Amino acid sequence: MTSASNGRGTGTGNGSGNGSGATRRVTAKDVAREAGVSQATVSYVINNTAHQKISDETRERVLAAVAALRYTPSAAARALRRGSSDLVLLVLPDVPLGPNIAHFMESITDELEPHGLTAITRRTRDSTPVSGLWRELRPVAVIGLSSFGEQDELEMREAGIHVVSALLSPVSGRSMLSVPQTLVGRMQVEHLAATGHRRIGYAAPDDARVSEYFHLRLYGVRTACLDLGLDEPYVLPVSLDVPAGEAAVRAWRAGENPVTGVCAYNDETAFAILSGMYSLGLAAPRDLAVIGVDNIPLAQLATPPLTTIDQNLEAVAAFMARTIVAAIAGRRPPRSRAADVVTLVVRESA
């Protein structure tokens, strides 16, 4: 009689039936019971523990039970035994997860896997401090897409965890890959100024969760305008809808000294501006030049195709993976210039 028909089967995957349709995780205790051995013997076999004499017959019995029950050892349990794990914790800030972040997550996973490392992603919120995440998972390394607090980073390093942060300007005296957001804003203005625009607008996001990125990019826009002898940028919040795009475009084009070129916080914000222009019977760059940030896949499909700043997150992911692998191996980390990562992609909108 199969386990599916005897009312107490082991179930599928890592669960076993409990009579209510729910599943529970198969444990080493279940494997020991199935194989008729102690739980310690299961652990010795699974971890191929040296200096433990396990007969071939017992080893085969344990492995057969593992296969029958589809048992997968807990990553947390392995971490407790070894003091660390093969996990790399990717800590995402509480920001919208757009296509670029998703692509970065895929890239870092692809870069780490050949080295036997597994990326696991968690988001930080007020209720989930970083310390709670790394203490539970015991990763070998932690990647942050924003800077960590000094105390958090100190505690992780003292615990032997390698820490790499990226995508924001560097914090003095601390090691991280810097993709300076001020440079992003500066490059937007420099391109518009090079194509003849003297009055610059800035389309700000309406989501408070991205304020850290936004203020750094806007600072780059403002300092570039100052250095190039341009007026202070005309900043307006633009939500991701057509009416907001229309209202901003009307405001920028009004008055005796209208805005002729707009830096958008990101590509999605730029799409709202382009949609507002289309609704008003206007077109870029003839009536208003527009430049975004991120170079998401849809940017080239906009009408007109969107000029943007590419942060080249594939290159960032590769660099961070190399940094982590080198740190684990005790080698000197690779060197990278952040300015080489950020590039201008010129299309028809500006």
Rank of each mutant, 00 (worst) to 15 (best):
E57L: 08
E57F: 12
T58V: 15
T58M: 10
T58D: 08
T58F: 07
T58E: 07
T58W: 10
E60Y: 02
E60N: 10
E60T: 13
R61H: 07
R61L: 07
R61G: 13
V62G: 07
V62L: 04
V62N: 02
V62K: 01
L63A: 09
L63H: 10
L63I: 03
L63W: 07
L63M: 15
A64K: 11
A64W: 06
A65Y: 08
A65L: 03
A65E: 09
V66Q: 01
V66G: 02
V66T: 02
V66K: 02
A67G: 12
A67Y: 03
A68T: 06
A68V: 04
A68Q: 14
L69H: 05
R70Y: 00
R70G: 14
Y71L: 07
Y71S: 04
T72I: 14
P73D: 12
P73N: 11
P73G: 05
P73W: 06
P73Q: 09
P73T: 08
P73S: 10
S74Q: 07
S74Y: 00
S74G: 08
S74R: 07
S74I: 06
S74H: 04
A75K: 00
A75L: 05
A75E: 13
A76G: 06
A77L: 03
A77D: 06
A77G: 14
R78M: 10
R78S: 11
R78Q: 15
A79V: 00
A79T: 00
L80G: 03
L80M: 15
L80S: 03
R81A: 15
R82L: 01
R82F: 00
R82Q: 08
G83A: 13
G83Q: 11
G83I: 13
S84V: 11
S85W: 01
S85K: 01
S85G: 11
S85R: 05
S85T: 08
S85D: 05
D86C: 04
D86Q: 12
D86H: 10
D86G: 13
L87T: 01
L87A: 05
L87Q: 02
V88E: 05
L89R: 04
L89V: 09
L90A: 08
L90G: 05
V91Q: 00
V91K: 00
V91G: 00
V91L: 12
L92Y: 00
L92P: 02
P93V: 10
P93G: 06
P93Y: 10
P93L: 01
P93E: 09
D94Y: 08
D94T: 09
V95Y: 03
V95M: 13
P96S: 07
P96Y: 07
P96N: 08
P96V: 08
G98V: 04
G98N: 13
P99Y: 09
N100T: 11
I101N: 01
I101L: 14
I101R: 02
A102P: 06
A102L: 14
A102Y: 05
F104K: 11
M105L: 13
M105F: 03
E106G: 06
E106T: 14
E106H: 12
E106S: 15
S107D: 13
S107F: 04
S107E: 14
S107N: 13
S107Q: 15
